[in-house]
Deep mutational scan, measured.
Amino acid sequence: MKVIFLQDVKGKGKKGEIKNVPDGYARNFLFKKGLAVEATPANLKELE
């Protein structure tokens, strides 16, 4: 799953980066803790 990092995550990505991460990791950790959002067209547009 492609995500946009909202904060630096040690060993995974830095704020503003767009990266592919495993689905479970994204849903169960990154999204729940507010560290990233899914890289949807709407979210990508907001990032610009």
Rank of each mutant, 00 (worst) to 15 (best):
K12F: 15
K32Y: 08
D8M: 05
F5G: 01
I4E: 02
D8N: 10
K12H: 15
E38R: 10
L35G: 01
L35R: 02
K32F: 07
P22V: 07
E46K: 11
L35I: 06
A26T: 07
V37M: 12
F31R: 00
G16V: 00
A39P: 03
E46R: 09
L44K: 05
K33R: 13
A39F: 11
L35Y: 13
G16W: 11
K10S: 12
N43H: 10
K12V: 15
L47F: 15
K19N: 04
N43A: 13
L47D: 06
F29Y: 14
G34N: 09
F5N: 01
K2H: 09
K12D: 06
L6N: 02
P41V: 14
N20Y: 15
G24L: 13
G13F: 14
Y25M: 08
R27E: 09
K33T: 08
V21F: 07
K14G: 05
V37L: 12
F5T: 01
G11Q: 04
G11H: 08
L47P: 05
D8I: 03
T40H: 06
D23G: 13
K15N: 03
K10G: 09
K19P: 00
R27K: 13
T40G: 04
K45N: 11
K2F: 15
P22Q: 08
L35N: 01
V9G: 01
K19G: 07
K33F: 15
T40D: 06
F31S: 02
K2S: 13
E17Y: 03
I4F: 08
N28Y: 14
A36H: 00
G16N: 08
N28K: 12
A39D: 03
K19H: 10
Q7P: 00
I18Y: 03
N28V: 08
I18T: 07
D8Y: 09
P41L: 13
K10Y: 14
A42H: 13
Q7M: 13
K12A: 15
A36K: 01
G13Q: 02
E17R: 03
K14A: 10
V37S: 04
L47V: 10
D23P: 13
G34P: 01
G24K: 12
A36Y: 01
E17T: 06
E48L: 15
V3K: 00
K12Y: 15
Y25R: 05
E17V: 04
I18D: 00
V21L: 07
K19L: 13
E46F: 12
I4L: 11
G16T: 02
K19M: 12
E46H: 09
T40S: 10
K15D: 02
V3Y: 01
E38S: 07
L35W: 13
G24S: 14
I4M: 08
N20A: 11
A39S: 05
I18M: 04
D23I: 15
L30Y: 03
I18W: 04
A42R: 09
D8S: 09
N43G: 04
M1K: 08
G34D: 06
A36E: 00
V3E: 00
L35E: 02
I4V: 07
E17S: 07
D8E: 08
G13S: 03
K14F: 12
P41K: 11
E38Q: 10
K2T: 14
E48W: 10
R27I: 13
K45Q: 11
Q7T: 12
D23T: 14
M1V: 15
I18P: 01
L44F: 05
A26K: 02
V9T: 03
P22R: 09
Y25Q: 04
R27P: 03
D23Q: 13
E17D: 14
V3W: 01
K15W: 04
P41G: 09
N28E: 13
L30D: 01
K19E: 03
I18E: 03
G24A: 13
L6M: 08
G11P: 03
E38Y: 06
K19F: 06
V37T: 07
K14T: 09
K14E: 07
N28F: 12
L6I: 10
N43K: 09
N20S: 13
K19A: 10
K10I: 10
I18N: 02
L44G: 04
K32G: 06
G16H: 09
G24Q: 13
L30E: 01
E46L: 14
E38K: 09
D8L: 05
G11M: 06
F31G: 01
T40L: 06
N43Q: 09
P22W: 08
K2Q: 14
G11E: 05
V21N: 00
K45V: 09
E48T: 14
K14Y: 12
K45G: 09
D23N: 11
E46S: 10
V37D: 02
D8H: 09
G34H: 11
F31E: 02
N43D: 06
K15T: 09
G11K: 05
K33Q: 14
M1S: 04
F31D: 02
E46V: 12
K33V: 08
K19I: 11
N20F: 15
E38L: 11
K10M: 13
K45H: 11
Y25G: 03
L44N: 06
D23L: 15
A26W: 08
G24D: 15
E38W: 07
D8K: 04
F29L: 06
P22K: 09
N43Y: 09
V9I: 09
L44I: 14
A26D: 05
V21A: 03
L35S: 02
K12T: 09
E17M: 06
G13A: 12
E48D: 12
G13M: 02
Q7F: 14
K12L: 15
L44Y: 06
A39V: 08
E46N: 11
Y25A: 05
T40F: 06
L35Q: 04
K14S: 09
Y25P: 04
L6T: 09
N20R: 14
G34T: 03
A36L: 02
K45W: 11
V21D: 01
N20I: 15
R27N: 09
R27V: 13
V3M: 02
R27Q: 10
F29I: 11
V3R: 00
K14H: 10
A39G: 04
K33W: 15
Q7A: 13
A42P: 08
Q7E: 10
E48A: 14
T40Y: 07
N43M: 11
L6G: 01
T40N: 10
K19T: 08
V37E: 05
K15R: 12
L35D: 01
P41I: 13
I18R: 03
L47M: 12
I18K: 03
E46D: 14
E17F: 03
P22T: 10
A42L: 11
V21P: 00
K19S: 07
L30G: 00
V21H: 00
